[in-house]
Simulated assay, not measured.
Amino acid sequence: MRVYACRIQLFLTAQTLKEKRGIIKSVLARSRNRFNVAAAEVEHHDRKDTAVLAFATVAESGVIARRLLERLEEWLVEERPDVEVAAVEIEER
């Protein structure tokens, strides 16, 4: 079994922390449902213009796990034009 983690830094257009929470909650819930990953906001909780999200998955092979997280990144870019993906790190844990 392989465990892979992905950190994605986002730039947001939110004007308030309440707007940011709405965007982040939506992204996290939809990614959990669509990709069956563990997901959480891990940094910049108090900043309205940026967020760092972490995703984790377990698979039989590293290729499968890495591809799943790459698809998640692609989906995020396509599905959420209101957020800008600034940085992505995928690594085996």
Results as ranks from 00 to 15, higher is better:
R93M: 10
V58Q: 09
D49A: 11
E41P: 01
E89G: 01
R80A: 15
E92H: 06
E60K: 07
L69N: 05
T57R: 04
A87R: 00
E91D: 14
F35K: 05
T16H: 02
W75R: 04
L76N: 13
R7V: 03
D46L: 14
R2M: 15
L72N: 01
E91A: 15
M1N: 12
P81L: 15
R30E: 10
C6Q: 10
E89W: 06
R80Q: 14
V52E: 12
E43T: 04
T13N: 10
I64P: 03
A39C: 08
E74S: 08
A65W: 05
A5D: 12
N36H: 12
G22W: 09
A86Q: 06
A39T: 02
R66K: 11
E60L: 13
L69I: 07
T50Q: 14
A87K: 01
R93S: 13
T16E: 11
L76Y: 11
V52G: 06
L28E: 04
Q15P: 00
A56M: 10
V37A: 11
A39K: 00
V42I: 13
L68Q: 08
V42K: 09
F35D: 03
V42D: 14
R32L: 06
E89R: 09
R80E: 15
I24G: 03
A86P: 00
D49K: 07
I90P: 00
V52K: 03
Y4H: 11
H45G: 08
V85K: 00
L12Y: 05
I23R: 00
K18F: 05
L28G: 04
Q15H: 07
S31I: 07
V27M: 07
D49C: 10
S31F: 03
A40V: 12
S31L: 08
H45N: 07
Q15W: 03
E43G: 01
A59V: 01
E19V: 04
E19M: 05
V37K: 04
L72W: 01
N33C: 14
Q15T: 02
R21C: 10
D46M: 14
L17S: 02
T13L: 11
E84W: 04
R21M: 09
E43K: 01
A29Q: 10
V52T: 10
F55A: 00
L72E: 02
E43S: 03
C6N: 02
K18E: 09
R93E: 13
V63R: 09
V63S: 12
A14K: 00
E91L: 14
E73P: 00
N33V: 13
R66D: 04
A38N: 09
C6K: 03
P81F: 15
K48E: 15
I24D: 07
A14D: 02
T57A: 10
I90F: 04
V3K: 12
L28T: 02
L76M: 15
G22R: 08
R30S: 03
E92K: 11
C6H: 07
A56W: 05
V77H: 06
A29M: 02
V58G: 05
I24A: 13
R67F: 11
V3E: 15
